[in-house]
Amino acid sequence: MNILYFAWMREHTGCAAEEIDLPDGVSTVADLVPHLASRSDGHATALRNLKTVRIAVNRTYGALDTPICQGDEVAFFPPVTGG
């Protein structure tokens, strides 16, 4: 599955996108977060405060309890500041 990070989250993780296999026992975004946070100190920093993080699964807004499966695209980003 493809994981995307934007804005300051991308700067912390050091990558805009990474390809991973769905870890065993993961069925929601919340289940996935600890696996991503353990990838590097930067990942841990980016994902430290999930209250300020927005989530999109397959380019549709989701939440921590959104179900995910192998092949999904999961994006993490800060609150938006366009316009």
Binding site: A7, P78, V80, T81, G82, G83
Partner: peptide
């Protein structure tokens, strides 16, 4: 449209 764009459209300003 502007009110929704400000809170929903994924843009970030640096």
């Amino acid at each position: 449209i502007m009110d929704y764009l400000k809170t929903r459209a994924p843009f970030w300003k640096k």
